[in-house]
Design a protein around this nucleic acid. Sequence first.
DNA 1: ACGAGTACCTGGCAGC
DNA 2: TGCTGCCAGGTACTCG
Length: 260
Amino acid sequence: MPELPEVETVRRVLHERYRGRAITAVAVGKPTFYRAPPLAAVRALTGGTIAGFRRRGKYLLADIEGRGSVVFHLGMSGRITVGEESPHVRFQFWVGTEAVRFHDARRFGRVGCELPELGPEPMDAAFDADYLRGVLRGRKASVKALIMDQKLIAGLGNIYASEALHLARVRPARAGKSLTRAEIEALAQACRTVLELGVELGGSTLDDESFLDPLGRPGRMQKHVKVYGRETCGTCGGPLRDTRRSIGGRSSLHCPSCQR
DNA sequence: ACGAGTACCTGGCAGC
DNA sequence: TGCTGCCAGGTACTCG
């Protein structure tokens, strides 16, 4: 599922390829993909020129000269491709004769002109141990649920949150307020580390997921994953435990030996 | 304000 | 083989 590193990987390809180019056509996918068709996005893109692509958390933004931005969220199964066809095209536009398509098999994606309220990203200057301490202070909710809350911290989903907690040696079900000062510092650093590694390695393409960049290339982060989608801990080799659906209804793999 | 639960949606797969 | 039913998960919503 696309988290910050996967979206950044997509952004870099699109920015490099289409910055400064004119949009020649726009088409909205079947109405079944929408509650309301994204008219504002169509208006902004039609006949526009791409100033560039930006990213905020897991959101991809197309900046259109003089018209603001169009916002894409890939949901959990969304893919953006150059040229590739599928029955799941939510939205597409053309640059010259080249079609850029947003495929959204499970329809959890979004296209629009509004960006929701988002917290700082772990690599932002505004994010440090002090900020994370403020996020966790007094909170009874699990640390994993809190670091995955995009209003608090933008960019971590289940994979990278699981990896960051493993790197920081903290169990996902721990209450936010129970973390020690040292654990908070380790976790702040771990959030940065796993996301930076993910970006550097072009995202993660796990067996049962299918993240590919717009040109169909897989990422390489999956080789460095220590818990997510594994049966044994990538550090100690011991069996992993899954809290199943108890954290935000999601599975939470962790190593009971490495994580406290 | 907070935390827990659920709806949304469909491809993939386990189990029969 | 072919069917059923469950599971995955980010976000937005409701409820207590």
